[in-house]
């Protein structure tokens, strides 16, 4: 019972893999399957660098067992864009310079995508609150909030 055969669908691709009970989803994704978009930051549910979507909802992959995600659909930052085009939220982070070192960016983007699906027209306070669980040590957040604001407009225009 210490090893388990599980199936993960990551960015539409189905994988069968064997994991230990204690393997965290973030490690299964990064080391088991090579999805190095989600990062390992604090490893204690605080910084959000490991944020991915499980069945469409943003969660912290450092606080989820890989075996718990058995049979679920996972989206990492690598799976956001389509046909070689960046997702509008990714584009906005680039245009608004919503990053410096970039380490927190995959998590910021995954949380923002989940948030904008629920609240397509947020104000700046709501954006800051939505990103409460994602920590950036470089930017001071100003440009990140700008990026999410601009992404919201882009997504609305695209509808």
């Amino acid at each position: 019972m210490a090893d388990h055969d599980i199936t993960l669908t990551v960015n539409g691709e189905e994988y069968d893999l064997a994991v230990e009970s204690r393997t965290l989803l973030i490690h299964a994704l990064r080391e088991g399957l090579g999805y190095t978009g989600p990062n390992v930051g604090c490893e204690s549910t605080l910084c959000g660098a490991c944020t991915v979507h499980v069945d469409g909802e943003a969660i912290k992959a450092c606080t989820t067992l890989a075996v718990q995600a058995d049979g679920r659909e996972i989206t990492t930052v690598e799976g956001l864009g389509e046909d070689g085009e960046l997702h509008p939220v990714q584009e906005s982070f680039q245009e608004e310079h919503g990053l410096q070192c970039g380490y927190c960016t995959p998590g910021m983007i995954m949380t923002s995508v989940d948030f904008l699906e629920e609240n397509p027209d947020p104000n700046r306070d709501e954006i800051r609150e939505a990103l409460e669980g994602n920590i950036c040590r470089c930017t001071g957040y100003q440009n990140i909030v700008n990026a999410v604001e601009s992404a919201a407009e882009k997504l609305e225009e695209a509808e």
């Binding site: 549910t45 959000g48 944020t51 909802e57 943003a58 969660i59 912290k60 949380t111 989940d114 669980g133």
Partner: peptide
């Protein structure tokens, strides 16, 4: 409670 990701789980 917690933050957005925590509340999802």
């Amino acid at each position: 409670i917690g933050d957005r990701q925590v509340r999802n789980a």
